[in-house]
């Protein structure tokens, strides 16, 4: 693997109350690649993803130990400004979460918060992002309708465009296609592959075939432990750990 490390997770442990959901996870995630975090349900995939943009902060009973370095900077450093970290990472959740406002305002929400005020500039950002998401032609005549009127597939693409509008470096996907029909899933998957040209993409998925389709790099979690990680081609061709093998053959899922 020749890629530079973008995110370095070091000895990360997370517990909810007395239950440890992540146990001493250390892994380097490569820049501008698609990394898939896979594993059976309840293995801590989503928790790992959420620690990356500090969404577990301030939740009751959650304890986080270890470090996450993004570009060499520890995001759990108490001096760091959490909104800046989150701005760096766009999140795509399981079900599309459109904000309760118009299509236009969904995209403009982030830039506005970060200080873009000029209408022309906002319009330009919105058009650009919607075009990149392949949504522009579908919605250009109804930009001021509530975003909730879009189909679920369109909503998820809108959410992706919304995330990109704040100029992140990293895109986090938490099973981003699980609520979508097969065709919309394909479109979103395709977008994620395209995006790795400019972004580091990290996707949690429970669909092994999806991981095969999109991932360059794999991290396999089992019961909160990072069992195996490495370039996707190697892992799929030649899994070393018996648990990884069992997962690939479908014995555990």
């Amino acid at each position: 693997m020749d890629a530079r490390t973008h995110i370095s997770i070091q000895n990360l442990s997370v517990s909810y109350g007395r239950q440890r959901v992540l146990k001493d996870v250390s892994v380097d995630l490569p820049d501008r690649k698609v990394t898939a975090i896979i594993g059976p349900s309840g293995c801590g995939k989503t928790t790992l993803l959420r620690t990356l943009n500090r969404l577990l902060d301030g939740m009751d009973g959650v304890k986080i130990e270890g470090q996450v370095l993004v570009d060499g900077e520890n995001i759990y450093d108490p001096k760091i400004e959490v909104t800046r970290i989150r701005q760096k990472m766009g999140l795509l959740s399981q079900k599309p979460q459109v904000l309760p406002m118009s299509i236009f305002d969904n995209i403009a929400y982030g830039p506005r918060i970060h200080g873009v005020r000029e209408k022309a500039k906002l319009r330009q950002i919105v058009e650009q992002q919607l075009a990149a998401a392949g949504l522009w032609d579908e919605v250009k005549n109804r930009l001021h309708e509530p975003a909730s009127r879009l189909s679920v597939g369109q909503q998820q693409r809108l959410c992706l465009a919304r995330g990109l509008a704040v100029k992140p470096e990293i895109i986090l996907g938490d099973e981003p296609t699980s609520a979508l029909d097969p065709q919309s899933s394909r479109i979103v998957e395709q977008r994620l592959i395209e995006l790795k040209a400019d972004y580091t993409v990290i996707v949690v998925t429970h669909i092994l075939r999806q991981a095969r389709r999109i991932a360059d790099y794999i991290a396999f979690l089992y019961l909160g432990e990072l069992v195996e990680h490495g370039p996707a081609a190697e892992i799929f061709a030649n899994p070393r750990d018996p648990r990884m093998k069992a997962y690939l053959t479908g014995e555990i899922s």
Partner: peptide, 21 residues
Amino acid sequence: RALREASLSLGATKWETVKHV
């Protein structure tokens, strides 16, 4: 909660999330 997180992960503060979302 996921809706709040959508706003937070765009870099909004908690208060902005409350106010707008």
